[in-house]
Design a protein around this nucleic acid. Structure first.
Lengths: 329, 329
DNA sequence: CTGAAAGCGCTAACAC
DNA sequence: GTGTTAGCGCTTTCAG
């Protein structure tokens, strides 16, 4: 069965292919009865316009590329969900790219994106260097970055100010004289951690102190849990802040094993909130990061950049919600 | 800056566009010096072949569509990861579609998929009726289904036999005279639950008994946790099996609150294993479902169907790994 | 209101 | 070896 084309429809309806094209694109200037004739033919033949050919002719694909890191798919998943939901509204298809450490370099992805002539790209990735964005820009692909604040002519961004988040949080503790605060790193997300560290250091500096307890989990440890067990044998803090839920749970479990009372002796807070935090006992304090919204707003911003020529607000800061639970006093 | 085409390169290198085409496609029959001349021009101009135009000319897009449910993105995320990893190997792009309850009907997705002329589609979705697959088949799009066993000329499938999984698991308990077994449903994944129920019923039947404790969580409950608390006040079982990790944790937490000893008085097992199961205390028994592999094998199967004309094994059953932990005796 | 024809960028016979 | 040319399926002036 040969795939049927606009030409077949034209013949069937006894009109020119130009007319068929007008009908399927909802052009106003077609007489009612010819429209019906065409629609019947379309129906009868089961014709579906070839998006590839349309893309070629129109010089636009109505698809946009989304780049995310392979890791931490739970958080990423929400971003994708938000993203796709609004992409749908605007009828955009989305092609998904993931950057796998060592396997798929960003460069290759950029390359295929350029070749595929997507209308725009949204990038949620830490290992993001300006260089690569510039290549995209050179090929005039509109870009929205998730997670990093940045913008210029063709790039917009949607982000949460993690530095401010942790600055405010820690300052409150420092105000109350609680100084032994530790931050558990996450190698998977260095840029994010960078921000957290900056915020924390600033909070300490503003209190005339210096931040010292940055817990970097050595590469050789398979899970942060194993290392934290080790670490907590010889180190005690009043507040431990982790990036991921799994790290917070590791700290909590270790504390339990060691008979450290949470939150009385040790308080725990996690940056990235998740439902699992609420399932732990005691429930762990977290910050609701608007992951879904990051995706949704990014896509929304992109459509704006695609359609409105006038200047729009290219930097969107989204806010988090502090969600105190039982692991903090 | 006008997007530069094969024609520009041809002019720059002073050859015909056919030659340029040969070079970029690695045709052997080009003389070395012309090849170099062309490559220089490509480099100088920053030329990237237009995949859309190639798609039109070649009648193939090297992209495949992946349909997943929006919900439960953790498990889904792994499938996507596996899927993408092997798609990369074969240089396929992937366009992602999600079926949102009430918002995006499968029908619409099928429609856009047909229009976009992807080379194949992989579907991981419960609400999957044969009807819709047939439409795809009619337009000769090769399909691989994840999760349901089925196949014919143009469709293959990759799945785990949940019925067998739970049959074996429950039988072992029944053999030992443990009959009070309950299954917690999950409304999000009815087809899966159907299988579990079938397996359980069969196990009971084969032991001359009847399975009775199917715990359906009423729609009005926001979280299964709230309902399970309620339920467990008046119902006691020896073994409770849940589908998701969150449900297992809800059962565990409730048991703790009520002073029910796990696993002494109540055993808990979860079908879909996750790292969170290992973080609970006691750690919860689960079955490692090869989610990543489901995605990877599906994509692998699809490429086979795309390239090899000869018959291949169209049904792949993947096996789970029983992972006993502290919540079972 | 409708048709003819010129592309969109690239590939693939078919010549030379 | 390399160039010419006819599509791939659709959109869009430009005539009529």
């Amino acid at each position: 069965m040969k795939r049927i084309t606009i030409y077949d429809v034209a013949k069937e309806a006894d009109v020119s292919l130009a007319t068929v094209s007008r009908v399927i694109n909802g052009s106003e200037v077609v007489r009612e009865d010819t429209r019906l004739k065409v629609q019947e033919a379309v129906e009868k033949l089961g014709y579906k316009p070839n998006a590839i050919a349309q893309g070629l002719a129109l010089q636009k694909t109505t698809t946009i590329a989304l780049i995310v890191p392979e890791a931490s798919f739970f958080y990423t998943g929400q971003i994708i969900n938000g993203f796709i939901d609004v992409a749908k509204i605007y009828k955009y298809n989305i092609v998904l790219h993931t950057t796998t450490e060592g396997i798929t370099e960003m460069g290759d992805i950029i390359e295929t994106i350029i070749k595929s002539h997507v209308d725009g790209v949204v990038i949620f990735n830490d290992k993001l260097n300006k260089e690569e964005l510039n290549i995209l820009t050179r090929y005039q692909v509109p870009i929205v970055v998730i997670g990093n604040r940045m913008s210029d002519e063709t790039v917009g961004s949607v982000y949460v100010d993690y530095a401010k988040l942790i600055y405010d949080f820690a300052s409150d503790y420092l105000d109350r004289g609680i100084n032994s605060i530790a931050l558990v790193e996450d190698r998977k997300n260095m840029a994010m951690i960078r921000q957290l560290r900056d915020g924390l250091e600033k909070a300490f500096a503003d209190h005339g102190k210096q931040f010292e307890h940055y817990i970097a989990i050595p590469k050789e440890y398979r899970s942060s849990y194993l290392y934290l067990q080790e670490y907590m044998k010889t180190n005690r803090h009043q507040l431990m802040i982790t990036y991921r839920d799994s790290q917070a749970m590791a700290v909590l479990n270790t504390a339990k094993e060691m008979g450290i009372a949470v939150p009385e002796e040790l308080e725990i807070a996690c940056i990235l909130d998740s439902k699992y935090l609420a399932m732990a006992r005691p429930q762990i304090t977290g910050f609701k990061i608007p992951d879904y919204d990051l995706g949704a707003v990014a896509m929304r911003l992109l459509t704006k950049m695609l359609h409105d020529d006038d200047v729009v607000e290219k930097e969107c800061e989204l806010s988090y919600i502090y969600t105190p639970r039982k692991s903090t006093k």
